[in-house]
């Protein structure tokens, strides 16, 4: 049940906003039906639907390798992983639906190219090692965000993220296990793993979002308990965890400026190529067109299936009423 969405022009907005922010400060969850600022709702719909779209589009680069997975075990794991991504998209669309937006509307926004999704999925998967690397780096980065969002003040989003976090840890681990195995494997396996790390490292850093100075929404999102950390904080956590592990695996990272800073305990990185990031976000990444085209095709080819079941259900209901 969509709640009451307050606008700054409402006479009681100031008072209600103060109550609302006090609830969040007390650690209460905001539930569907509760009062919330229209802007809170708008930001949530934007974030949650983008997040859902990312899961759904994210099925494509990895899904393409299910038919080429090199062992029974890897094939099984990859099907389960890509399936989880469908599940995560499903949970997230549900969370957004509690804010009064329909899945039909959200899909329309995705397929028409209006809605955004994570830039990372517009890069191609060129070899099998990309599958392990996506698990280790991309899911590793995603988990950082998801762990934070599991604390989110909006109940349905938080619950979806708790469920996703519980499932996602295996995605990260299977990837890490695979890349470390190949790093110690044959020369070809090793070269393949290194090449994949080289290609995915920077996009993984970028997927955590623009620098705080270019992220105008962040302060509001933090105050309303939607986010609890800034993009740069999350990115730093990600690098601190992953850089030493990758180096320890005997692989290198494609950043000549990368170094450990004793004073702060942080791994410092070189400049990120934000031109590339904005190009990909703006629709000009290597795979933007193909990804969207694949989604559109599946949607169009599934139309008759959705209609058939709707028709069957309608007829059954009529019969039930007639009886």
């Amino acid at each position: 049940m969509p709640g009451k969405f307050g606008k700054p022009t409402d006479p009681d907005y100031g008072e209600r906003l103060a109550e609302f922010e006090a609830r969040i400060a007390r650690g209460e969850k905001i539930e569907p039906g509760d009062w919330m600022p229209e802007e809170y709702r708008r930001q949530l719909v934007r974030m949650i639907s983008q997040h859902a779209h990312s899961e759904v589009v994210g099925m494509l680069p990895e899904g393409a390798w299910i038919t080429r997975a090199p062992s029974l075990k890897r094939k099984m794991i990859l099907i389960a992983k890509v399936q989880d991504e469908a599940g995560h998209g499903q949970y997230l669309y549900h969370a957004a639906e509690t804010l009064g937006v329909t899945r039909e509307e959200m899909l329309e926004a995705l397929l028409s190219g209006k809605a955004k999704y994570s830039s990372i999925f517009n890069y191609p998967t060129l070899t099998w090692a990309d599958i392990g690397t996506i698990g280790w780096l991309v899911d590793g980065a995603a988990i950082k965000n998801q762990t934070m969002l599991a604390q989110c003040s909006y109940g349905p989003y938080s619950r979806a993220m708790v469920r996703i976090c519980a499932e996602e840890t295996f995605h990260h681990k299977q990837g890490k296990e695979m890349v470390i195995l190949y790093a110690k494997g044959t020369p070809k396996q090793r070269a393949m793993a290194q090449d994949a790390i080289n290609r995915w490292w920077w996009p993984a850093l970028m997927m955590l979002g623009p620098h705080d100075s270019d992220s105008p929404n962040t302060p509001t999102l933090v105050r309303w308990g939607i986010k609890t950390k800034t993009n740069d904080q999350v990115r730093q956590e990600f690098i601190n965890e992953h850089a030493p592990e990758i180096l320890e695996a005997g692989l290198t990272l494609p950043d000549p400026d990368l170094r450990y800073d004793e004073a702060t305990g942080n791994w410092l990185h070189g400049p990120i190529n934000w031109d590339e990031f904005w190009a990909v976000v703006g629709g000009n990444g290597p795979m933007n067109k193909e990804r969207l085209e694949a989604r559109r095709r599946a949607h169009a080819e599934g139309a008759w299936v959705r209609e058939a079941l709707a028709a069957y259900a309608a007829r059954r209901q009529q019969t039930a009423v007639a009886v």
Binding site: V56, M59, L60, G63, A64, I66, T67, K75, I79, V82, Q83, A86, G87, G89, Q90, Y93, A294, R297, A298, E301, G302, A303, V305, R306
Partner: peptide, 14 residues
């Protein structure tokens, strides 16, 4: 498994 990512609706993909 060739359908994974290309099903007619999310639930059926799953």
């Amino acid at each position: 498994s060739e359908w994974v990512g290309h099903g007619p609706i999310l639930e059926e993909d799953i």
